[in-house]
Amino acid sequence: MTTTDTPVNNGVNVEALLGAREALTGAPEAAQFTWRATCEWQNGTHSRSSVEGFFGLGAEQSHRTRSEFDADHPEIFASADNGVTPVEYVLVALASCLTAGVAAVAQNREIQLRSVSATIEGGMDVRGILGADSDVRNGFSDIKVTYDIDADASPDEIKALVAQSQKRSAVYDIITNPTNVSVEVR
């Protein structure tokens, strides 16, 4: 880490995060969050999901604004392409989660970031989702994330930021570990 005259500022309030960690360690009930989205079918493979409220700290919470997300499939799948594919949302989720983590870890380690950019690619054999070959899985066969980071730190310190970010990432965990999923019809 390089000592600079100006304090490190990546725009992350680490004190608040560390305070929350300490407070929630002794209050596991308050740490129970529920994240939510709703989804409305539009037409064809086009759907529109929205996110606004969530539950946490023992109460209903809300984002500042409601967000909407159109999902569809591209024209080469004979769809209207009214939005990105659901699997691309997964890539967006992973990249944004890891990048937020890089900033938070850098702030905690007093490393000033100048730029952080990531390229994320998910390989997929679409014979799985097409049902063309039952030995092929539906999901990604592999995901590759490549970071370019300019920061006041050594190459190993930058690698350690990215490694620690993966260790603390929710989406990384969601993707790398199995999760029980129940889907019901009312």
Binding site: Q166, K167, I175, T176, P178
Partner: peptide
């Protein structure tokens, strides 16, 4: 080992990062 489901052991996809973390820690 992340779970066992239907007689199948499920392994986490995090092996590369766990090794990277350990290599970096050893370097330090």
């Amino acid at each position: 080992l992340a779970g066992i489901n239907g007689g199948r052991a499920q392994f986490s996809g995090s092996l590369r990062n766990k090794c990277e973390l350990a290599d970096l820690k050893l370097g330090r």
